Simulated scan of single mutants.
Amino acid sequence: MVGVPFDLVSLWRESKAPAIIGYCESTSTAISWFTFSSILIIMALTAERLVAICYPFSLKSWFTKKTVIYVIIAIWVLSFFPSVYIGLQFKQVATDFCGKIHLVELGYGSCDFVGWNFAYTFEVMLLLTFVLPIAFILYCYVRILKTLNLMTSTQTVHHPVANQTSDSSATTPTIKQNFLQIHQRQCGPAMSEKAQKVVIKMLVTISVVFFICYLPYHVERLIVWYSNESCEQSIICLLLYPITGLLQYISATLNPIIYNLMSYRFRTAFRLLLKRLFLPTRTKGGTTDHATIPLHL
């Protein structure tokens, strides 16, 4: 929703930016902001599953509805600052006959990265927005899988068995029951464990999609930054930009589809949300009664 209008303007004007003050800066900031927020939200979802499975009694109580709202707000605020840092380094520029890039007046150039004194901007962004998130997600998955395997292997079921004996000393005979406990290992995982594994499969799928779609994006930035003029003469290099941009859109498109296909609770909440927005029900008093959406989405 944010990136497509900017791309349409770029295609319509043949890559020339319109004569709007701060157009290049705001465009890059907005796209980077939503990209960084998506990455941090994937990390937050993985961290929540880690806490729910590995620390169900000590830390699970922290994840209240209010805490989740605060975490989402913090993610958007935190991702805004690196986005502004990247966005302010995009200006309207043009290339002269010697191949040198110069700042031009509004409406006569295209948006391009000009950079500041720091020469390793893309390397730092690669580390912060790709390498570290992937490392954190992999660490969480290893911990989660170990915990689930441990829960499955050590789970036992206690079956009470009654041993009936008669008491003949009393006038009226009574029957005493001595209960014994038989410990039997359960063959299959419990339903809660199956549900947890479904969630883990969903998060793993989302993380794999994120890895496949965003790795070419970072590689393309590094290639263009270090190859300079030679990249403009290579067909493969020129194709990298539209391909990596398309992969970003594919990642954003696939995420809600994956949620709907793999999560029953997400489908249920989504249907209730649509019903609440478009199909309000009328009560006897004439007021509108909307469908209630469960909080534990």
Rank of each mutant, 00 (worst) to 15 (best):
C237M: 06
S166F: 10
L148S: 06
C213W: 00
E232V: 08
T174N: 10
W116K: 13
S230A: 10
N228W: 06
C231M: 08
W225L: 14
F118H: 07
L222W: 00
T171I: 09
Y108H: 13
P173I: 05
P173K: 04
F130I: 01
L106D: 08
E123F: 05
L132Y: 04
H158A: 14
S153C: 09
N178H: 14
F118Q: 11
N149T: 15
S169A: 04
L126C: 05
F113P: 05
V131P: 03
T121F: 10
H183T: 10
L127P: 01
T172F: 07
Q181E: 14
I182F: 09
L145T: 05
F113C: 06
E232D: 13
V224W: 01
H218P: 01
S192V: 13
V124A: 12
I134L: 08
I236G: 02
E123K: 07
C237T: 03
A119S: 11
V114K: 07
G109D: 12
Q181T: 09
P216M: 00
S230C: 12
I206C: 03
F130A: 10
H158D: 12
E123R: 04
N149E: 13
V198T: 13
Y217P: 00
S234C: 10
M125L: 12
I236N: 02
V157A: 11
V157I: 12
F179N: 08
Y139C: 02
F211I: 02
C140W: 02
I212G: 03
S110W: 15
V198A: 13
Q186S: 14
I182V: 15
N149K: 15
F136L: 06
N117I: 08
E232L: 14
C213K: 00
N228K: 12
K201H: 08
A170F: 11
Y108C: 08
T174F: 02
V209W: 00
R221V: 02
I175Q: 05
V208F: 03
T147P: 05
Y139W: 05
T121V: 13
I235C: 04
I144W: 03
N149H: 15
L180I: 07
T152L: 10
T156S: 14
C231R: 12
Y141C: 05
G115H: 02
Q177C: 06
T172W: 03
Y108E: 15
A170C: 09
I235K: 07
C231E: 03
I200F: 03
W225V: 11
S234V: 11
V124F: 12
L203I: 11
L215Q: 03
A170W: 07
M125H: 05
F130Y: 12
Q177G: 01
L138C: 07
S166K: 09
V208L: 07
K194I: 09
Y108D: 13
I175L: 04
I223W: 01
K176V: 02
Y217S: 06
F136E: 01
V124E: 09
